[in-house]
């Protein structure tokens, strides 16, 4: 039968670990996952934002951040993002 691990159960196991968030647009985030809700709005800590532009990648450091789940495309657990 189909495995019954729900996708968000996997993400729940990532709370406290680093996670890499890829948005639908050319934008990515890495940070430590503190929590999330049913819309996959995410609270991250020690965040780096990566903005990919034709001129290169712009990096922004952020503290605790609530990321809107609306434009999230993919989550990569345990990864520290494009630089790792």
């Amino acid at each position: 039968m189909a495995s019954q691990v729900l996708p968000l159960e996997l993400i729940d196991k990532c709370i406290g670990s680093r996670i890499w968030v890829v948005m639908k647009s050319e934008r990515e985030f890495t940070g430590t996952l503190l929590g999330f809700d049913d819309f996959v709005n995410m609270v991250l800590e020690d965040v780096t934002e990566y903005e990919m532009t034709p001129q290169g990648t712009k990096k922004t450091k952020l503290g605790q951040t609530l990321l809107n789940g609306n434009n999230i495309c993919m989550l990569i657990p345990g990864s520290d993002g494009p630089e790792s």
């Binding site: 709370i15 929590g35 609530l66």
Partner: peptide, 17 residues
Amino acid sequence: PPRTIHTGSPTDFLKGV
């Protein structure tokens, strides 16, 4: 629980901020 800080869910974050 790893460490019980009062910031977890989005709701908690928003209360704190």
